[in-house]
C-alpha cells in the first residue's frame, strides 16, 4: 500500500487553500471563481458507494435552500471526472434527482491533501467525510469530519450555515439546537433504515437483487434493523 503523506490541516479561521481543479461542471479556480459567495466544500470516500450516494441525494434535495443563503455546494473525491459523471447520471436514472453542483475530480489527491481530507487511520486511499464551510472572504469558518461509515446530516450543515450567517449579521452567538425559524425537521420511517455493505464481487452484486433489501441499484441497498 502506498504511503500517504500527512500534511498540516487547515483550521477554523485560516484562509482556505487556493487550488485549481477539474469538476463535473468544468474547470474551477478556488477561491477566485467563488468570490462573494459562501462555499460548502465536502469530500466523500468514493463514487458508486452507498452512503455517499445518499449524501449526494440529500445535498441535491437541499441545494435550493443552500442557494437561497448564497452558498455554492462543491463535492470532492479522488475519483476521475468520468466516474463522477457516470455516477451522477446513474443517480439521476435511478432516482430522478439531478446533482446540481460540481464534483471535483481529485484523482491525485492534491486538493484532499491541502484540506486534510485524507486520514490514514481511517483509510489510506479514500477521503473521509469532511465538510468545510468557507465564507465569502475565503476564510474557513467551520469544519466537520465524519468517518466512512456514518452519513452526514445535511440539515445540520444547513443549520450551521444559518448559524454562521446569523452570527455575522447580528453580532450574536447561537445556542445549542438553535434554528432560525421554529420549523420542525421531520424525519420519516425512511430515515431509520440502514445501508447494507455493498457487494465486492460480480456474483454478490447479482445475488443482491434476489435478497429482501430495498435497492436503488446494486451498490445501494437499505434494510430495516429488526
Amino acid at each position: 500500500m502506498e504511503e500517504v503523506k500527512v500534511v498540516s490541516m487547515p483550521r477554523i479561521g485560516d484562509p482556505a487553500p487556493s487550488f485549481q481543479a477539474m469538476t463535473t461542471m468544468g474547470p474551477i479556480k478556488f477561491p477566485d471563481d467563488f468570490k462573494g459567495q459562501w462555499v460548502v466544500l465536502f469530500s466523500h470516500p468514493a463514487d458508486f458507494t452507498p452512503v455517499c450516494s445518499t449524501e449526494f441525494l440529500g445535498f441535491a434535495k437541499l441545494n435550493q435552500e443552500f442557494q437561497k443563503r448564497n452558498v455554492q455546494l462543491v463535492g470532492l473525491s479522488v475519483d476521475s471526472v468520468f466516474s463522477h459523471i457516470a455516477w451522477a447520471m446513474n443517480l439521476k436514472e435511478k432516482t430522478g434527482i439531478e446533482i446540481p453542483f460540481p464534483i471535483i475530480a481529485d484523482s491525485d489527491g492534491k486538493v484532499a491533501s491541502l484540506f486534510g481530507m485524507l486520514h490514514p487511520g481511517e483509510s489510506s486511499t479514500f477521503t473521509v467525510r469532511a465538510v468545510f464551510v468557507i465564507d465569502p472572504n475565503a476564510r474557513i469558518r467551520a469544519i466537520i469530519y465524519y468517518p466512512l461509515s456514518a452519513g452526514r446530516n445535511i440539515r445540520e450543515i444547513l443549520r450551521l450555515v444559518d448559524a454562521l450567517q446569523t452570527a455575522d449579521k447580528y453580532s450574536v452567538a447561537t445556542p445549542a439546537d438553535w434554528v432560525p425559524t421554529p420549523q420542525t425537521w421531520e424525519f420519516s420511517e425512511e430515515n431509520t433504515k440502514v445501508i447494507v455493505p455493498p457487494p465486492t464481487t460480480y456474483e454478490e452484486a447479482m445475488e443482491r437483487f434476489k435478497a429482501n433489501y430495498e435497492c436503488i441499484d446494486w451498490y445501494l441497498c437499505k434494510k430495516k434493523l429488526s
Partner: peptide
C-alpha cells in the same frame, strides 16, 4: 448558469 461556472468560462 452558476456564477462560478460563468467566471471559469469567461476566464478561459
Amino acid at each position: 448558469r452558476p456564477l462560478f461556472q460563468v467566471r471559469s468560462s469567461l476566464r478561459e
